[in-house]
Design a binder for these strands. Structure first.
Lengths: 220, 220
DNA sequence: TCCAATATTTAGACTAATCTAAATATATAT
DNA sequence: ATATATATTTAGATTAGTCTAAATATTGGA
């Protein structure tokens, strides 16, 4: 249906749209995809001809209904495969992105639905990101930043903002991963660093830099 | 490393080489891959420049050691994914080829090894084809054709020659699939058709056409 | 308002994979 | 042995995706 490249553009536009609003700039896409603005313009025209995006020259681009659906389908596959890689094959959550990046392009609606069922219809991937259902609907996700946590309370880690491998690896090393319970013992007002305990373990210091990239929900 | 297209050529050359001997003709590749001879010549030159094949113009092509290794790695992945699709996701053996055709190109040595382990190191895929190990070694496979079976004996179905979907689907419908036990009750010398029973079930007539495409081993 | 900085698009070119048509080599049947 | 049929390669063109450099549009500050 769509080429790998087209799928990657749709996904990129979707993610940028999620963060920065519906109108996505050529340069933002170029930066996100590590290509040149001229290349992006070419591809946007193609996606526009296929009615996957709305495009007015110089005004940025936004996903059409079909484009959004396509993007969500790719994201669904990506996240289901990530879940598979962690839960079934035993990879760590910081290892699976690049593999899923390839697997998300496998074309077979039947395969996706069977995989979903096989995995027990998970709602979130190993990073805590919501998995769209077969219709492209995202599960409700109420989440706050760890830096907005209150002293003395406990929370459940529900995901991350930053998805870079080095960040994820660091979190994994200190024992932080989605699902764990975080007890907030101290908040240093000077540098906004936190002293926490994970699942009731020993105290751990978390910088503001890290706390702003961790998502939490009320525990239970 | 290699493009999808290059991988598909290597696989095609491997399969043709398996059937017709080491020297594979341009036309044979073109026919197998549904392209034109001119296209094949171009690609052969590229594979030759990469030292994946040995090539003398007008004399056909053969896989180099590296080329053969690459081909076996792709076949390994294809067959492991087929096994996964049937054993874990519950697809029928006649449904999985096209999906595996896409999955075989996923690049990640670690993923393949973990998948192999997860599946319990299977030796054969759902069609009975041998799965190369991590080093590219194929398991021993002694197999005969069903048409060479003897009256009154029983055999285990070990695979198929023809891999076309319609053939596989037909076999599945009549209950023949790798692993089943075949009792040969009668052989009609006139048309070489067979009367068999599957796993001791009710009698079934098998044409010569079908019998020549089914592989068997001695039962147990 | 107008100019400079920034963002975007256009023009022209490149590579990989493919094609058709023409040229050339090999094989085969009298 | 030679002509004809078949197989293969070459030449030249096409499409998708990419690039650089140049042209053009938008924006924000004086």
């Amino acid at each position: 249906m769509h080429s790998f490249t087209e799928e990657n553009y749709l996904k990129a536009i979707y993610k940028l749209m999620e963060n920065d609003g519906p109108e996505v700039s050529t340069n933002a896409i170029a930066a996100h995809m590590n290509t040149r603005a001229a290349t992006v313009t070419d591809m946007i025209k193609k996606l526009s001809a296929k009615k996957l995006v709305h495009y007015t020259p110089y005004q940025g681009v936004s996903l059409s209904t079909t484009g959004k659906k396509a993007a969500l389908s790719i994201i669904r596959k990506h996240r289901l495969w990530e879940f598979f890689l962690v839960e079934k094959l035993g990879f760590r959550w910081d290892e699976v992105h690049d593999m899923a990046e390839q697997m998300e392009h496998i074309q077979s609606p039947e395969l996706v639905e069977r995989l979903d069922e096989y995995l027990g219809f998970p709602k979130h991937d190993p990073h805590g990101d919501p998995i769209p259902d077969a219709k492209g609907r995202l599960p409700e996700t109420e989440a706050a930043l760890l830096l907005s946590a209150q002293k003395g309370k406990k929370y459940k880690m529900s995901g991350v903002i930053d998805h870079h491998v080095l960040f994820l690896k660091h979190l994994d090393e200190i024992g932080l991963k989605p699902g764990c319970i975080i007890y907030v013992d101290q908040i240093t007002s000077y540098d906004l660093s936190l002293q926490i305990r994970i699942n009731g373990g020993k105290p751990l210091f978390i910088s503001h830099q890290i706390a702003r990239n961790i998502l939490i929900t009320s525990s239970r």
